[in-house]
Design a protein around this nucleic acid. Structure first.
Lengths: 346, 346
DNA sequence: TTGAAAGCGCTAACAT
DNA sequence: ATGTTAGCGCTTTCAA
């Protein structure tokens, strides 16, 4: 690999001039610049990132931190990662994939101590997240995909649960439904302070109230079987529920089975929709399920962009330099599982 | 961040001694070593990877190259990535996520020119893959997840299609089936030299022949609808087919619908199985589908390991230093869609 | 067994 | 407008 010196020799100038010409750090005579660029091109010169980073304290490398997938990574998580990687690449950055081990803080301490990364992108942020405290204290630049309970002045990109809930409720209310049920994530996820579960529940409740329709979310099945049972329990407790939103794909499977078992059909007897599931999953059901599809890749891109903006001080220049927090709603993808409410049995 | 010099001062020794003590590069008196380690610990010293890399030409960073997902990444691809990242971390390496843009070779030239990565992990390898030629010529260390038509002396980890096919055929033959059909990937994927599609088809044919059962794979539906139609076409052309394996989840959806439409049931009238689909997907069907689940995370891990072994010269030390090629079969996960053949209508 | 010093490839003062 | 030089933090001869 040719170095700056090789280019300098070939162009008959000093290394600092080459550096300046290539980086635009200081004015260089047009003629010299041309010679330099030509020499660099002929040699196939590429700046050595390590040398540059060692000197400038900037590597243009970002780390994406994620908990080692408990139940295996879903499509959604993957899209955060690929979205972030693409945005980073387009802005001239690299993305390091950093699975967390048992001790995320130690992991972070290690990672940031290496001098390898300029900033950190946090995935799977919990409502109370120790990683956030650590990074803040350590003065490391970071942004979140998702957010803590009180993000304060921290950059993040997250789902706009308020708008998502409003859209979901508007969808079912528009079809004429008067009472919506919601099967949130399992109690475990809820207890684990899983932000989306808690926010989705709260916002759906609010949106339903605002729209003046009934709302229930007492059930939190965690599997297909539990989903089926929860559905039956739901109907006996609330026979007037005609629309159901569920967070978990597997639960939807169980609900559909229970619907069929009692001789009902979707959407004739029940409007069923997914929340936070990709349309690729939704369309594997029959009937194809309506879903509120999360803007995963977009959130990944945004998270990366926010971080890079901050690193480059752009956050400060435009606007007042405060935190930049971006909310993106899910997209309503209407399948074949949405319809008017069933005629109530008398 | 404390540097080597800080540690050296605190321990009252020369920097070179600290380096030696911490890396075991040369003998250091036990007492000195202890002092040094203590000083390092007290200071919370972390070696600067950039400085080390600049000097040693080794960064312990690997790049995972993948084509920007055409139809979006599947679960399988994701697991390659997380598997590789975990293995890398456990072996003291970092993994860079590198989406390819329009020009993969230029991308590669850039990436390897930066001096940032020690080696490259190739995903989505096609039967003829220009990236392989480039890396070989450029003398860059790499390994593949998947393989070219003639991998020659290149390290790779791939699915053992022969064993997978044999297991799949044994499964259906063991249930008493005498004729198996296979819906391969769509013609597009086939034409795109997608290795798994081509190898799976070839090996299933071979395995069926060896087991002495009939085999058809004339159909290549690419969607649920095409899957349904293909199924009907299959039955009229080969009414004696009682077992069907499909590569594509969506196609399975269509087949199930067609089965139901003609008043049939799975597995009573048809044994249906997935090939190369994760069990998480398979269990979302009703009935739960039998699947040959790809060892994705394992392949990711192996790919990373092979590459690291080579980088550390371990490939050469043990054995004769030739390429290391690892094949791992899919795992048969039996669902509720496998059963004995239907009684043939006369 | 340890220390001194050179240098990896680059950036950024400081000089000219 | 360009050249000279001093490091960034580390590894690695070479001396002592």
């Amino acid at each position: 690999m040719p170095s700056l010196r090789d280019v300098a020799e070939r162009a008959q100038v000093a290394v600092s001039t080459v550096s300046a010409a290539l980086n635009g750090t200081r004015p260089v005579a047009a003629a010299t610049k041309l010679r330099i660029e030509q020499a660099a091109a002929e040699l196939g010169y590429r700046p050595n990132l390590l040398a540059r980073g060692l000197q400038s304290k900037r590597t243009r490398i970002l780390a994406l931190l994620y908990p080692a997938p408990r139940g295996g990574f879903g499509l959604t998580e993957m899209q955060f990662a690929t979205g972030a990687a693409e945005e980073a690449r387009e802005l001239g950055y690299h993305l390091l994939l950093s699975p967390e081990n048992a001790d995320p803080i130690e992991e972070l301490r290690h990672l940031t101590g290496l001098g390898l990364v300029d900033g950190v992108l946090l995935m799977e942020v919990r409502l109370d997240d120790e990683r956030v405290d650590f990074l803040t204290r350590a003065g490391v630049a970071f942004s979140m995909i998702g957010r803590t309970r009180e993000p304060g002045p921290i950059d993040y990109a997250d789902i706009d649960f308020a708008v998502t809930a409003r859209d979901a409720v508007a969808h079912v209310a528009g079809l004429g439904h008067r009472k919506l049920a919601f099967f949130n994530h399992s109690t475990d996820a809820y207890a684990a302070q899983y932000g989306p579960a808690i926010r989705a529940g709260a916002e759906l409740a609010g949106a339903a109230a605002l729209a003046g329709i009934g709302y229930v979310d007492d059930f939190r099945p965690g599997s297909a079987e539990e989903g089926g049972r929860a559905f039956e329990a739901l109907l006996s407790a609330h026979p007037d529920v005609t629309a159901l939103a569920v967070m978990d794909d597997h639960v939807a499977v169980g609900v559909l089975a229970a619907v069929a078992a009692r001789g009902w059909r979707v959407p004739r007897d029940l409007t069923l929709m997914l929340v936070l599931s990709s349309s690729r999953v939704a369309e594997m059901f029959r009937p194809r399920l309506t879903t509120m599809e999360p803007p995963s890749a977009e959130l990944g891109r945004l998270g990366a962009r926010l971080l890079i903006d901050r690193l480059e001080g752009r956050a400060r220049s435009l606007g007042e330099g405060g935190p930049r927090q971006r909310l993106v709603p899910c997209r309503l993808v209407i399948g074949d599982s949405s319809g008017p409410p069933r005629r109530q049995v008398p």
